[in-house]
Structure formats: C-alpha cells, structure tokens
C-alpha cells in the first residue's frame, strides 16, 4: 500500500537523479569527447585532477570563496542578530526583510548588478577616486589578484541576511531572563555574544556554516556571468570547470570527475561541520 504512494516520487527520483549519478561514476573512467567512442582510462581522470595544477587551482579558488561566503557572513550575522536581540529595535521586521532580500534574487541578476559596480568606470571606482584613492581604482574583475575578492564580496552580500535570520530565530528561543541575568552581572555586548549567544546558537551556526559553505563550493552563476573564469584562469571554480570541460572542450571524463570530487568534498565538509557541532554539545 505504502509503495503506491511512493512509486511516482521514487520513479522520477531514480530516473533523473540516481541514474545520472551512477552514469557520472561510469563516465569518469573514460576519456570521451561526447560524440565518438570513449576510451577506458581507469582512474587516470582522478589522477589528473589530483596532480594537474590547472585542475587543482579551481578547488583552491573555491576554498578562498568559502572564507568570504561563509566565515564573513556568519560573523556579521552573529553581530547583527545579537544587536537586534539586545536592543528592542523599531522596524526589526523591516530590517529582517531587507537583509534577507539578496537570498531570493536570481544569482544571474546579482551578477549583472555587481559586474556594473566593479566595472572600471563603475560606482566603486567613482567612490575611490572621489576620496583620493585613485591608485586603488581598477577593473576589479579584470585584475587577477583581486577578482576572487570581488566575487567574495558578492558572496558576503548574498549570505549575510540568511545567517542573520537563522540566528535571530535561534536567539528568540533563548529566554529573556538569561540575558537579563547577564545584564545584572554587568555583561557587555561582547561578553554576552561570547558567553550566551554563540553557545546557545551552536546548532544554528552549524546550519549557517553548512549552507553558506556549500553555496561557496558550488559557485557557478556568478563566475559564469561576471568573469567567465578570467582573467586567464584566475577565477575559475570547480563547477565552472565541470561545465567548460564537459560541455565546451569535449573532455567529458575529466569534467565529470571534477564534479564527483566536488560532490565528495561537499559531503565530507557537511559531515565534518555537523560532527564538530554535535561533539561540542
């Protein structure tokens, strides 16, 4: 009886998710251009990803992005949520809605907006020139040493509201009397943040870290629209490499292998973060 209710979901799930996943594993053992007949190469594709600097670089770039997409928004989100919990803010609902807004806008649109901001004649450089920092003005997305930072800033913009909202929900479960007791003991903002907010938000922090970290590791839309992986290969990331190799360069085996290793990294990181959070509880 139960199987009748499950059948449609399981059918779609198996055909369009499980099967392609298995097929991906199969393809990763071949060198194939997507058209002709593939050549069996065993684990050579995996070896390539681990040893070829061109294939390792995207993973390092993703790691840099994790710092921006994850650590910065979690930190800012904690501060904002604590501030809003300490002081009864007027218009709290308004601030919450506005800060969460970046989460719902399509990343392609986000990319178009920020591409303009970072443009050589864009608003960011206008501001820098206006305050006399002319030497700092540059084409941010065309500068190999700044391009990842620029994409990272967009990640901060996208993720901060999500973290704040998660933490606000968590802090609303902490009893007011806990804070009041701390106040009476003369605890200031930082003391409260470190001794009450952070410990009671352990679960929410784990969730926020997981969500933003996975988003960072999977970055694709932003890179595709803003930089195309450039300048040179300075901003290429794993997902972008998957697309380029498998769909544009006729290296299906390599592309799929990168995708599978990315999946493994995401699974490992997710498990690790949640283990750490549970252990400390």
């Amino acid at each position: 009886m139960a199987y009748l209710y499950l059948a449609p979901a399981l059918l779609v799930f198996s055909l369009f998710l499980l099967w392609p996943l298995l097929h991906a594993v199969y393809l990763s053992f071949f060198e194939w251009d997507g058209l002709g007949v593939g050549t069996w190469v065993g684990l050579a594709n995996y070896g390539d990803v681990l040893t070829d600097p061109d294939l390792r670089a995207p993973f390092w770039h993703a790691l840099v992005l994790v710092g921006f997409f994850c650590l910065v928004p979690v930190t800012i989100g904690l501060v904002l949520a604590s501030l809003m919990t300490r002081t009864a803010v007027r218009g709290a609902g308004f601030f919450r809605s506005v800060l969460f807004l970046p989460q719902v806008v399509a990343l392609t649109v986000v990319a178009v907006a920020w591409r303009d901001i970072f443009a050589p004649q864009g608003p960011l450089n206008d501001v820098l020139r206006a305050v006399g920092l002319d030497s700092f003005a540059r084409g941010w997305l065309g500068d190999a040493s700044w391009v990842l930072v620029a994409i990272g800033v967009v990640g901060v913009w996208v993720g901060t509201g999500l973290c704040m909202v998660l933490f606000l929900a968590g802090l609303s479960n902490v009893g007011r009397e806990v804070y009041e007791a701390a106040r009476i003991d003369g605890a200031g903002f930082w003391r409260e943040l470190v001794s009450i907010s952070v410990p009671s938000l352990r679960g929410e922090i784990a969730v926020a870290v997981t969500l933003t970290m996975v988003a960072a590791l999977r970055t694709f839309d932003l890179v595709y629209v803003m930089t195309g992986g450039g300048p040179g290969r300075a901003s290429t990331v794993p997902s972008y490499e998957v697309y380029q190799r498998a769909m544009e360069k006729g290296q299906v085996g390599t592309g799929v292998t990168v995708a599978l290793l990315l999946t493994a990294v995401i699974l490992l990181a997710t498990v690790l973060v949640n283990r750490l959070a549970e252990e400390k509880e």
Partner: peptide, 29 residues
C-alpha cells in the same frame, strides 16, 4: 513498511548531491 529507512536515506542523498554532479550525464542521456 519494509525498507522505509533505506528508501528515506536514499532520498536524503538527493538533498546532498549537487546538480553539478548529475547535469552532464543527464544531458547525454
């Protein structure tokens, strides 16, 4: 019902697998 745990975890796997991993084979299929 029998196998409910296994089937449920199978579905949970779908929550974790990023679309990057399946989109290429899916295209060729």
């Amino acid at each position: 019902f029998r196998g409910s745990t296994v089937l449920f975890y199978l579905l949970l796997l779908g929550l974790m697998v990023p679309s990057e991993a399946i989109v290429v084979p899916l295209y060729y299929d």
